[in-house]
């Protein structure tokens, strides 16, 4: 049976990218511990609205851990701490104790400017994707799907890389604000598949160049990204990206 807990939420308020921002806090009383973290914030907002205050703004959408929209930095960990790795929306209040102070912050990184409160602008990821995260094909002209045989192991590994949801937790956790885990997961997916090989060199160069241009930092292999990735992407992807990139540059 669910039990109720009471705690304090310290949440970040910031009016646009130029505002300095500050914390506000609210006591939450008797919240059932089978409430999800975001539902708890819904309750917080309901109370704020009823008190005539402005609600707390944060991104969220599917609430089942796949859309990658939710992006809260909870008690020092992107998406909050769980054993298996999960997004904010899959965090439940039973992970917290009576009397806790829960600090909620936005992703803090130069490439992710704050729009409002904990809602940040992650369009940089779209720009990186646009730089090369695709195979250039024409609709309707593809050959039969079974004409390309792909070893199961490669297909499975490509699938693991493709699982990345683009939430940006890797950037949020990285002390260098590096997007290498995100970029390498995309590059890896295509690098592992024959369909992706023709453009592999171009892709690696273009995506890395765009990532650098957008102000993401340099990877120093701290592994903070893979530790917080809700989809368990690994830095083996980063090694693969480095390989692809070096190969491409050597071939130039």
């Amino acid at each position: 049976m669910a039990k109720n807990i009471s705690f304090t939420v310290k949440y970040w308020k910031q009016n646009g990218p130029k505002d300095a921002g500050h914390f506000e806090q609210k006591e939450m009383r008797n919240i059932p511990d089978d409430t999800s973290f975001l539902e708890m914030l819904d309750i917080l907002n309901e109370e704020l609205i009823n008190e005539g205050k402005e609600p707390f703004t944060f991104d969220h959408d599917c609430r089942e851990g796949i859309c990658g929209m939710c992006s809260l930095y909870i008690n020092g960990t992107p998406h909050g701490k769980t054993e298996r790795g999960a997004t904010t929306c899959q965090l439940y209040m039973r992970r917290f104790k009576d009397g806790d102070v829960i600090t909620v912050e936005p992703w803090r990184s130069a490439a992710f400017p704050v729009i409002k409160d904990c809602m940040v602008d992650r369009s940089a990821f779209d720009k990186i994707q646009a730089a090369g995260g695709y195979t250039t094909i024409r609709t309707g002209q593809a050959q039969d799907a079974n004409a390309i045989l792909i070893p199961k192991d490669n297909a499975d590994e490509a699938m693991d890389c493709a699982t990345c949801i683009g939430c940006g937790a890797c950037v949020a956790a990285c002390k260098n604000g590096s997007a290498m885990l995100f970029v390498s997961s995309k590059v890896s997916q295509f690098a592992l598949l024959p369909q992706g090989r023709p453009e592999a060199a171009k892709r690696a160069k273009a995506m890395v160049a765009k990532m650098d241009e957008l102000g993401f930092g340099n990877c120093t292999n701290t592994r903070a990204c893979e530790a917080v990735c809700p989809k368990n992407e690994t830095i083996a992807n980063i090694a693969r990206l480095n390989r692809e990139f070096l190969k491409a540059k050597m071939a130039d």
Partner: peptide, 18 residues
């Protein structure tokens, strides 16, 4: 066909077929 050409990693059998 379209999705495979895009690089969608559908599940495969050991022989490499979908």
């Amino acid at each position: 066909d379209q999705c495979v050409a895009q690089g969608v990693p559908f599940a495969r059998e050991y022989g490499g077929m979908l």
